[in-house]
Design a protein around this nucleic acid. Sequence first.
DNA 1: AAAATACTTAAGTTTTAACTTGACAATTAT
DNA 2: ATAATTGTCAAGTTAAAACTTAAGTATTTT
Lengths: 111, 111
Amino acid sequence: MHKKKPDIDLVFHALGDPMRRAIMEKLSHGPVSVSRLAEPFDITLAAVVQHLQVLEESGLVVSEKIGRVRTCRIDPVGLSAAEQWIRDRRSMWERRLDQLGDLLAEKDESR
Amino acid sequence: MHKKKPDIDLVFHALGDPMRRAIMEKLSHGPVSVSRLAEPFDITLAAVVQHLQVLEESGLVVSEKIGRVRTCRIDPVGLSAAEQWIRDRRSMWERRLDQLGDLLAEKDESR
DNA sequence: AAAATACTTAAGTTTTAACTTGACAATTAT
DNA sequence: ATAATTGTCAAGTTAAAACTTAAGTATTTT
């Protein structure tokens, strides 16, 4: 159970794969073991484990092994990091649109 | 200028590449031409154009060609789609945490 | 103690994606 | 008219990522 601070490059790379997003969707309903996580998908368990490693290194998922079973769950911190990046770009863009609006309004006044 | 409704698979795939995210960052400051967009990066213009195609097909960027110059800008709709997906997973997860809290509270009352 | 479960790891294959090169088309400037 | 600018397109190459197979480890169950 070694948490990592989320690296935005790793987070977006991890979310870029549809299978990993499907895994995140499943995990969003609650913690699950690796084998139960793999059940619905038609790829090997080994492949799922590899995806989980990517998700964990990115900070999107944390897991804990008790006995022989590893239970995985979402780490909301990773998701927030991605959400924040998107929000930043969007707000920057929208601020610009507002400035443009102000500029047009000024022009409108000065005629 | 042909808009597309954003496909979440394409959007996340597009954002998965660090160079494309760098392009998005640059575009967040305002619309730019293809060549000015390529300037700061040390890849060929052709490569940048290919990234732009990916971004455009995903619905993150729109562009318009006037004369010989193509001007690109962010389409906030694409970004919202990604933000929404993340928010959905996170809220689902947090709802579950709340339910877990309720459950523990009940237990606490009944002793 | 033996068998079954639940992963883990390493190696190799296949597929996908990024990037370059080089030729070309359209527009604008001289 | 010629040259310079701005972008487009099609191959081909390289590198990265996804996936499988097969063998191995640790933990339960019977």
